[in-house]
Simulated assay, not measured.
Amino acid sequence: MVQSLNTKLDLTTQATAFVGFTEYGNIMIGDKAFEFYHKNDPRKYIQIPWDEVDYVVASVLLGGRWIPRYSIQTQKNGTFTFASKDPKKVLKAIRVYVDGQKMVRSLGFFDVLKRAFFRKNKKK
């Protein structure tokens, strides 16, 4: 059985982790870490301590009314993408432990196109 890193829980909600295959389970946000536990298999879990979090990137659509998914970029282990029942509550709970400067919006579809086609070449 996996031991939780948290001593106090702030939020627990159903979620989906996008790591290879889609994994269903629960997110637990507490005082020490962000944790994801698989619904049926106790061997499948993700534990991210707050000091390992580099950025939290949210995909924001429809002017902020809909957040389909969010990602947590770590300093050593890459990026983990999640979706949950109420993402706004999750992001507010994360903001208690992660600096607001580290919580950013992902680029939109047209922003990606602008960067790809209208990039200024500064090569000499």
Rank of each mutant, 00 (worst) to 15 (best):
R95D: 06
Y70P: 00
P68R: 12
Q47W: 00
G64I: 07
K76E: 14
W66K: 09
T22I: 15
K114R: 14
L11E: 03
I27A: 04
R43Y: 09
L107H: 01
T81E: 12
T22W: 10
D54E: 15
T22C: 08
Q3P: 00
E23A: 14
V104P: 01
R119H: 10
G108C: 06
L61G: 00
Q101V: 04
Q75D: 11
T12A: 15
K32D: 04
D10K: 09
F110M: 14
Q14C: 04
N77W: 03
G108M: 06
S71T: 01
K92R: 13
V56K: 08
Y45A: 11
I48H: 03
W50C: 01
G25C: 03
V53L: 13
R105Y: 05
G64N: 07
R65P: 00
R119G: 11
R65H: 03
F21K: 13
L5P: 00
P87D: 14
K123M: 06
L9G: 00
L91E: 04
F80I: 05
K124P: 09
F118H: 12
N121D: 15
T79L: 12
K88R: 12
Y97Q: 15
F109Y: 11
K88W: 06
Y24V: 11
T81S: 13
A83V: 01
F110K: 10
G30V: 01
E23N: 13
P42C: 08
I48F: 02
S84D: 08
K8Y: 07
K92F: 02
Y24E: 08
R105W: 03
A17Y: 05
K114F: 09
K124I: 08
G20M: 09
R69N: 02
V104T: 12
Y24W: 09
K102W: 02
V104Y: 02
P68W: 09
K123Y: 10
P42I: 13
K88L: 09
S59E: 12
V112H: 06
L62E: 11
K92G: 01
R95H: 04
F80E: 01
V96A: 09
T12S: 15
M1G: 06
I29N: 04
P87N: 15
L113D: 01
T22R: 15
D86Y: 09
I67E: 03
K123R: 12
D31R: 05
D54A: 13
K76P: 00
K114H: 07
F36L: 04
V112E: 05
F36Q: 03
E23M: 14
V104C: 10
L61Q: 09
Q3E: 11
P87Q: 15
